[in-house]
């Protein structure tokens, strides 16, 4: 369905060129969910914007993005716009990014349906009510006349999802769809996305900084660090045997419900490197507890673990991982 090939994104800044995405390769099949995990600033959003061709004007993009048999980088702006409305949909962290504050929920849904599916007013209205009901909004008929600010954060995200799903997309990119929400509402929204993904046999990319979010809800996980994919594996294989020290550190930093109160968390010290000053060696080396001289001098390539599906970029992969953080 989607294949991202050697995609790189560079942004000119006053401090020099910033490499936000550094030669990323990914694929997502129909009916599959890919999780993309990493700290803030590691390039997750830029990667999704590269796929959607929604990069800032000054950004330089290279590589190939094959979607449904066409190279998105070669499409005309007009064709792209059509594609984004129909087959390629996105849900952002802040639902207000995709909602218009001065239009009612109904107007926004109905207009989207009319524009892309060429439905008449009555059919579009009926479909809108069905969509709102499908995303778990009570009394959907009444909601049509409400404005986004009259809804809670969770409800707004449901509406944004309804709009994203309205044209039956083949691929849905959900960029931290629940980071701004409570844990309970987060669980509801993730359930909703998973249910709709299965029902529609969509491909989905779920972006998050929380490994707990992707564990039970994705088929494959790509871990990003400093613009690169540093580990990639089928979800069960990843959690069974993490290879990349960064993945392990991200997992260990999560507060565990089975740990006693006041147990210090194994935090990753420091911050990711300045993306305008790329390191010569492994970009995780200043923070990595396994780093040796070679790590500071040379950049590790993605190598294969037991199966070609499991790849990691590290000179000293973790050998025996018990499944949980050390």
């Amino acid at each position: 369905m989607l294949s991202v090939e050697n995609v790189a994104v560079e942004l000119p800044t006053p401090r020099g060129n910033l490499r936000a995405v550094d030669h990323v390769n990914l694929t997502v099949g129909a009916g599959r969910t890919l999780g993309v995990v990493g700290e803030s600033g590691c390039g997750k959003t830029m990667l999704s914007r590269a796929i959607l061709q929604l990069l800032p004007k000054k950004a330089k993009l290279s590589g190939r993005v094959m979607f449904d048999g066409q190279d998105l980088l070669q499409l005309s702006p007009e064709k792209l716009r059509k594609l984004r409305g129909r087959s390629l949909a996105v849900v952002f962290q802040d639902p207000m990014t995709s909602l218009n504050p001065v239009l009612t929920i109904g107007t926004q849904l109905i207009e989207t349906l009319q524009e892309h599916l060429e439905l008449d007013q009555a059919t579009a209205t009926k479909r809108s009510v069905e969509l709102l009901a499908a995303v778990g909004i009570p009394a959907p008929e009444q909601r049509l006349t409400q404005y986004p600010h009259q809804l809670s954060g969770g409800m707004r995200q449901r509406v944004a999802i309804a709009i994203a799903l309205s044209c039956e997309p083949k691929l849905l990119i959900a960029d931290e769809p629940t980071t701004a929400l409570d844990v309970t509402i987060q669980a509801q929204i993730l359930d909703l996305l998973a249910r709709e993904q299965r029902r529609r046999h969509m491909a989905m990319i779920l972006i998050t900084h929380d490994l707990g979010v992707v564990a039970g809800r994705t088929d494959e996980v790509a871990v990003m660090y400093a613009g690169r994919v540093v580990e990639r594996a089928p979800t069960p294989a990843l959690f069974k045997k993490m290879r990349m020290p960064y993945t392990e550190a991200l997992l260990a930093a999560l507060p565990r419900i089975d740990a006693a109160p006041h147990t210090p968390l194994p935090a990753i010290s420091g911050r990711p490197p300045d993306p305008t000053r790329p390191l010569k060696g492994c970009s995780f080396s200043p923070r990595c507890r396994y780093a040796v001289a070679r790590c500071h001098a040379e950049k590790p390539d993605l190598a294969e673990a037991e199966t070609p599906a499991h790849q990691y970029a590290c000179f000293h992969p973790i050998e025996n991982h018990a499944g949980a953080a050390a």
Binding site: Q186, L211, G212, G216, P236, I257
Partner: peptide
């Protein structure tokens, strides 16, 4: 408690 995401793929939400 149930809503906490558990980083274990064997624990189905």
């Amino acid at each position: 408690i149930e809503a906490i995401p558990v980083p274990d793929p064997d624990v189905r939400p």
